[in-house]
Amino acid sequence: MSPDTTQAEPYLVGEAMTGGYGAADILKTCTITAAKGEIAVIVGPNGAGKSTAMKALFGMLPLRSGSVRLGGEDITALQPQQRVAKGMGFVPQTHNVFTSMTVEENLEMGAFLRRDDIRKTIEQVYDLFPILREKRRQPAGELSGGQRQQVAVGRALMTEPQVLMLDEPTAGVSPIVMDELFDRIIDVARIGITILMVEQNARQALEIADRGYVLVQGGNRFTGSGRELLDNPEVRRTFLGG
């Protein structure tokens, strides 16, 4: 997947982001970018600011300095719901499905901003995640962890996002389910959607990443293609277990 070279800069840019909760800055001039149709992955130790960087990009964390741009437009001052309207989708790590609602009702909830016919998008989600078509009448709370994650990603896709942000999408699932979720994430990127994800399974995530970021103490420690980071001896030794 080659980035879209017609743009002067990557589609999503969080530049020199500094901010946190209360007086403490968790992010310190952190820069994250992702091009159109690219899979960008943020990895690093616990407490490095990975999820905080995602929240800053999505407008859930006010920045003290720095900026966020989407398709060349400065969106730093926009609220999360305004960013959704601009084409950003966000899947949090937990509490990301309506457990008492059916799979299909969850997908319909994802289209709350839309006023057009959503059936085509629902069918696209079912094509991407065939198990959801099979279980569309079942309450989401009865599904396995991996299937719930598919519902959560599917619901975010119902907004027809240009950028899909995933916070630890494979947390708590088996290696087989993780591989399947990563395959589906690759499929989503292939249709031109930019993927940005925080992932604890760093090695596996970098294997599918076009671009990778290793954060340490709220700042950029290493940046490169997924392959460059996997091949970097210091990254391997310090962050990937050798």
Rank of each mutant, 00 (worst) to 15 (best):
M1S: 15
M1Q: 14
P3T: 00
D4W: 15
D4S: 15
A8P: 08
E9T: 09
E9G: 02
P10L: 01
P10N: 01
L12H: 07
V13H: 05
G14T: 03
G14P: 07
A16R: 10
A16K: 08
A16I: 00
M17E: 02
T18V: 02
G20R: 01
A23S: 15
A23N: 14
A24S: 14
A24P: 04
I26T: 12
L27D: 00
T29R: 11
I32K: 11
A35Q: 05
A35S: 15
K36V: 14
I42C: 13
G44L: 07
N46M: 07
G47Y: 04
G47N: 05
S51V: 06
G59R: 02
M60K: 05
P62L: 03
S65P: 03
R69N: 07
G71A: 12
G71H: 13
G71D: 12
G72W: 00
I75D: 04
I75C: 08
Q79G: 06
Q79Y: 13
P80S: 03
Q81D: 15
R83Y: 01
A85L: 10
M88F: 11
N96W: 04
V97G: 03
S100C: 12
M101N: 14
T102M: 05
T102C: 06
V103I: 00
V103G: 02
V103T: 03
E105Y: 08
N106D: 00
L107E: 10
G110N: 08
L113K: 04
L113H: 04
R115L: 03
R115F: 04
D117L: 12
I118C: 09
R119N: 12
R119H: 14
R119A: 15
K120D: 14
T121C: 07
V125H: 07
D127I: 01
P130F: 11
I131W: 06
R133E: 12
E134Y: 10
R136N: 08
Q138K: 12
Q138R: 13
L143P: 06
G145Y: 10
R148N: 00
R148A: 01
G154Q: 00
G154M: 00
M158E: 00
E160V: 09
L164M: 04
M165K: 08
D167E: 13
E168N: 09
T170M: 03
T170A: 05
G172A: 12
G172D: 07
S174I: 02
S174G: 04
V177G: 11
V177S: 10
M178I: 15
E180P: 11
F182G: 01
R184I: 00
I186M: 12
D187F: 09
A189C: 01
G192T: 12
T194W: 09
I195D: 04
I195P: 05
M197H: 08
V198C: 14
Q200D: 01
N201R: 06
N201L: 01
R203D: 12
A205S: 07
L206Q: 11
E207D: 13
I208K: 08
I208Y: 09
A209K: 08
R211T: 10
G212I: 02
V214E: 06
L215G: 12
V216Y: 13
Q217P: 04
F222T: 14
F222D: 15
D231L: 10
N232C: 06
P233H: 07
R236P: 09
R236S: 14
R237V: 08
T238L: 10
T238V: 11
T238R: 11
T238D: 14
F239H: 15
G241W: 03
G241M: 02
G242S: 11
